[in-house]
Every structure is written in C-alpha cells, then in structure tokens.
Design a binder for these strands. Sequence first.
RNA 1: GGGCGUGUAGCUCAAUGGCAGAGCAGUGGCCUUUUAAGCCAUUGGUUAGAGGUUCGAGUCCUCUCACGCUCACCA
Length: 545
Amino acid sequence: MIAHASTRSRGHCFERRPLPQGGPAPTQRGEQDFAMWTPSNNLEQERLDKLNSLRRRQIDPYPNRVVRTHTTVEAARAFEAAERQATSEPEPISVTVTGRIVRQNLKGKVYFAHIEDGAGRLQLFVRIDKVGESTYEMIRQDLDLGDFVQASGTMMRTRAGEISVLVDELTVLAKALSPLPVIKERVREDGTVERYGAFSDVEERYRQRYADLAVNPDTRAVFRARARTINALRQFLDAEGFLEVETPILQPIYGGAAARPFITHHNQLHQDLYLRISFELYLKRLLVGMYDAVYEIGRDFRNEGVSFKHNPEFTQLEYYQAYTDYYGMMDLTERMIAFVAEQVTGSTIIHYEGNTIDLTPPWTRITLRDAIRERTGIDYTEHPDAQTLAAAMQRAGLAAPPKYTWGKLVDTLLGDTVEPTLIQPTFILDYPRDISPFAKSVPGDASHVERFEVFIGGMEMGNAFTELNDPLDQEARFVEMGRLYGAEEDEATPVDEDYLRAMRYGMPPCGGCGIGVDRLVMLMTDKSTIREVLLFPHLRERNDR
RNA sequence: GGGCGUGUAGCUCAAUGGCAGAGCAGUGGCCUUUUAAGCCAUUGGUUAGAGGUUCGAGUCCUCUCACGCUCACCA
C-alpha cells in the first residue's frame, strides 16, 4: 500500500522544482524503479524470482503485442461446428487464444491448463514434444496461476472428451506477481457447480474488488446484470420519447430532497459548491425550456449514514414528463420496471430474499392513510397535530420521537409499520403536505399532496409527484420548509431563487419520478445489500494495515 | 453515534488457559490425456494492533482499528 502511494508521487519527479533541503538525490530511472515494490510473503517472492527468470530467458513478461484469433468460447464453438459437419475426422482448426491461467496441472511431460478470458474458459493441452523443451521448461519453471498467456494450436478433444487446444506455441502476456485466491470447482452429476476455497471475506472482496471479480464469476454476473438494468431503463425511456440529459453535479445551491450535502470548493472562483443531492430542480427547469420529457441517470451524493440500502454516492434515475400527473407516472413506472425485469431476468416474476415477487402491472395502489390505518388502526387525519398523533402512536405501542413534526410522525408510521410489509410492488399515495415541498396539493384536501412512493421487496424504490408548477406557492413552500426545519437543522431546504424565476416563466403541468437504481439492481440480482451491487462501495479508510 | 458479533498462513478454516494446525496454493521430486488429478518430501505465522491478568494467553480483561448484523439517523 505504501509502495503504491510512492508510485503515485513519482509523477512529480518530472516537475522542475528545487529538491527539499537534505532530501535524497533523484534516482536514475532503471533498476531503482523496479525495486520500489517488495514482496510481502514467500509466494510473491517466488513470483518475482520467476519474473526475473523469464527475463533471463530473453522473454518479455509484459510484451506490447498480442494476437488473438478466437475468444475461448469462439474457439470451442468453431470446433463443435466442425465436428457436426464432419463425417469422420473434423477439419483441423487453428486458433490463437489468450487468457488468464485459472487451473494448471503439470503431469510429467504433459501440461494442462484452463485459461479464462471475458467470454469463458478453455483448456490448453501442452505436450513437450509439440512445444519443444525450452518452452516446456519455461512453463514448468516460471508460469503461475493468474498469469496471462497466449497460445496457438489446433483444436481437439482429450480422451476425457474436453475440447482443448493442442498447443504449438505458448507465450507469456503478463506475469502476475501477487497470487489470486485459489478457487477450485467441481461439476456435480446434477450439473451444479461446487466451489472449494471461495474468496468470501466480505471486507476483502469490497476492498479488492478486482480480485473478487477475477475469481468469482458470480460477482461478474452481478455487474453485467447492473449494466443490463441501466441499459433497459434507457431503452424504455428513449422509446417513450424521453430525452436523456445531463445536469450539474457541482451546484451552488443544493435542493430537491431533504438530505445533507457534501461541500466542496472552487479555488479560482472562491466559491463553495455542493455535490448534488438530487436532479429534480434542474430537470424541471428543462420543462420550462420546452422539452416535453427528460430523464437523467447519474450519481447523487448524500452526506449521511451508510446502511444495507444507503451509500454516500448512489445512482439515481429521475424522469419528468409534461402534460401528465402522478397517475401518469404510476402507469409509466410500473411498465418500466416490468420491462427492466423482463430484460434482465427474462421474466416479470422475480425472486428476492426468498420471496416471489410479481412485477406484472397493474400494481396495488393504496393511500398512505388507508395503509397506516390497516396496519395500526390509527387514522392520522383524526390526529391533525403532532401532539395528539404522538399520543395515539404511543397508545398503540409505537415509537414517537418527541421533537418530530406531524409530517415526520406520519413518515415514521410509514417506515415502521407499512414499508417492511410491502413485498409485492405497491404504490403508496398522497402524503402529508409538510414533508413534500415540490408536490401539488390533492384537490379539496389542503393537508395532502399528490405524491407516491413505490415499494418492492420491503424497500422504497422510488418517489414521485404531480409536480408543483405554481411559482408563488413554490416560494411559500420554500419559506415554510425553512421555518419548519429552522437554521439549526442541516436539512433545511435552501431557497433556489433561480428555480423560482424559471417557474415564473411558466412550467407545464407535469409528473416526475425518481428511482433508486442501486436498489433496483439489488432486486434484479437478489442481493440484500447495496454494497454487493456497487463495484467500489465506500469503506472506511484503513489505518492499521 | 449505541448494542451484539467477527478478525489465526496468500485463500478457506481448526486449535479445553498448556508445543499454532489442516486442505488448497507455493517449493523439490515421480508421472505424455489431467480436470477439486494423484503420490512422496517440504517452506510459509508479530494469532488485526497496543496494554494487562497469569507460571503460561489465539483463548480471559481493557483500549484502539477494520468489517458484519442491528438500532438511531436518513425521501
């Protein structure tokens, strides 16, 4: 780790600046540079020795040029095709394949290895009488699991029936100095794969995701599914006529959600900037600008606690459509997620944490008031202020934090009693006005707004409104939020004057929705923590190792 | 931030307060169709870190670090 840090600072050697007093003289490039890293155990020492041994054999362990005529899978397919066509002996098929050695078996004067590339695995069959003694000696002495190689030869089947390359020529493409965890597998008679010695330490898998990906095909599959999920979202929204846009991540005023921001600073402008906590206010400006429908997929940053469903940076999808309302967004959202499931898993019926979840539209729609009344018997509209509602909650044996506003108490009821029960996809409609500053009121009901949250698998997946487009009402809401949360609360929504100016030019009636993409991926891949679906989840810096 | 738990070889894991071990990987040897190859021999440890109790600590106690679960926080 220290070695890596110093490698980084090497870039500064090229800057022309005086050396610190008494500092070491700059070293000549050459031997010294390669000596920066030192092996941390005997396994690495062995590999470093082999690297030097390759050099002594006049073999470049990291050559510039590579040849590949077939991926591992293409080579095997080509051979199978030739076998099917042939009546007796199939036509010889010459291939050059590349990959990482994932299994090797030196058996006297014969050497078997499985190489793996991005497509799959393929066995190499090396005979001393085919490759010659010097290459065979190189293999025997200097090759390790984890090394990348290039092999040329002819496709064949071994006696055991496995499709292999009978190798004429084998060269090193990249020497691996640190050993990857060794995982052996056995295919059982029923076709399932049994793994031995899996790399399973959760912390190490996250900290060294490259190693996790290199040895665990299941991990690679998760991130392929993630890519397919995001691709399917784009495909769906593009086909619906939405325009994909990109809005600022560095914002002078943050807003659009109740969350604490990360603060950064622009040196030349002498200006503090915030990393965005949502895209909402910028995307709605674009509806003022006469796009009928826009969406953005990108990163949000919230300076808050981490949990199995929270990471400080996470991927969000927000989409806004003019000339519709939250009912339109419900229709669109359930169709979109069903489409994603179909694309990613092949079905709108998925399995998550032991539950079977049917994402086929239409989904259950129930008002927040009815949902809470069903679970707790409490009709919060009968307790229209914080004091009486808290009392009712306490009578029902529920936690009611004393400093909470009425709206926050309702939100608590939702989170504690309703959310965990919503395994099947469910829209919860109509939220208290004072926790929803960007939504239009329900006609004839000043205390509620047209907002829904969508829950699947006991998790909130999304949040949507009939968007408020009355600039004067919006201004009042900003002021109201500021007063509710006050200066001592970090979550106070700052007044965005430019956003109000945009709205005063006229904003069409519209619906908008935000979807937590990471949580959607959790659902698609049946993972119970957000860290499993983030390539490099945020972890605390390590001080002691 | 609180509570509970975990941390032993490169990886996966054992070890009643009493010599720190196994499998895989590695090294040396045998083996020209292996596939969790096999057989023989063998290297590898600051038991996360610091301190304490004890004749003796991987094991018990205190503190620190990291991770996991959970509560709090959290659109």
